[in-house]
């Protein structure tokens, strides 16, 4: 076996974190992106700015505030403890919360621009043909913006895999619980285990490159067209 059991653990945990985060982001990000795409005004500009904040802030800033927010003494921390009986800080759930916030713009922005570029006329045509709003979304918006959904999900996933600062601040480095790939890599370099570091770093480079390649290939012209 190329990878040790702990390395497999790390990869499994990273994948689970990225997958959970992506799923949550798609569920939350879609209505948010729809709203942003169709509202004009200072309220939506403010929300847009907040969504974009993780793009410009050092992840450590975000992590610092999240750490304060998730601490057992805060209302959120206490609420969580009452609800689940476990502590929020330094848990997998904390990582998910941090990742969702951190990767939010990567999911919301492509969706928002896809929704903005979607010809309104097509939805109007759907409406006159008897499609309710939900039906229009399902039968027209989703298939017509499929590429953007794939791009948004891939970017959200890849970005979560690659995050470091936020995880370090709120997750610590607990093997099997919060030790994700980027942290493990840092660990290995710190302890001068370069061969192992190479395996993780190289693997991540190959994975990211492959994913991005697939996104861009998928973005070719008329990729949404149904082929028969």
């Amino acid at each position: 076996m190329l990878l040790s059991p702990t390395e497999l653990d790390v990869i499994g945990l990273t994948a689970a974190l990225a997958a959970t985060t992506t799923l949550i982001l798609l569920v939350l990000g879609t209505p948010l992106a729809w709203w942003l795409a169709h509202r004009r005004g200072s309220a939506s500009a403010m929300v847009e700015a907040v969504v974009a904040l993780p793009l410009v802030l050092p992840p450590t800033v975000l992590g610092f505030y999240l750490l304060l927010l998730l601490a057992p003494s805060t209302p959120l921390g206490q609420f969580w403890e009452q609800l689940t009986g476990t502590r929020l800080a330094f848990s997998f759930s904390a990582l998910v919360i941090g990742s969702v916030i951190y990767s939010l713009p990567f999911v919301v922005q492509p969706l928002q621009s896809a929704f903005q570029n979607l010809p309104r006329g097509l939805l109007q045509a759907g409406a006159t043909l008897g499609a309710t709003r939900w039906d229009q979304f399902r039968s027209l918006v989703l298939p017509l913006t499929r590429r953007s959904f794939i791009a948004a999900a891939s970017l959200g996933f890849a970005h979560t895999v690659g995050e470091f600062g936020v995880v370090l601040m709120i997750g610590g480095n607990i093997p099997g619980e919060t030790q994700v790939l980027s942290i493990a890599l840092y660990d290995k370099v710190e302890t001068l285990r370069f061969a192992e570091a190479h395996r993780l770093a190289g693997g991540l480079v190959v994975f990211s490159l492959a994913l991005l390649f697939l996104i861009y290939r998928n973005n070719g012209p008329a990729a949404w067209r149904v082929r028969i």
Binding site: L122, Q124, A125, A127, T128, G130, L144, V226, I228
Partner: peptide
């Protein structure tokens, strides 16, 4: 809402759904 009015609308710019065939 339009979907309950039972009107047919033929638009100047046709507004056919690009992701569906004619049959679709």
């Amino acid at each position: 809402p339009p979907w309950e009015r039972r009107i047919g609308y033929v638009f100047q710019d046709t507004r056919l759904f690009p992701h569906l065939t004619v049959q679709g």
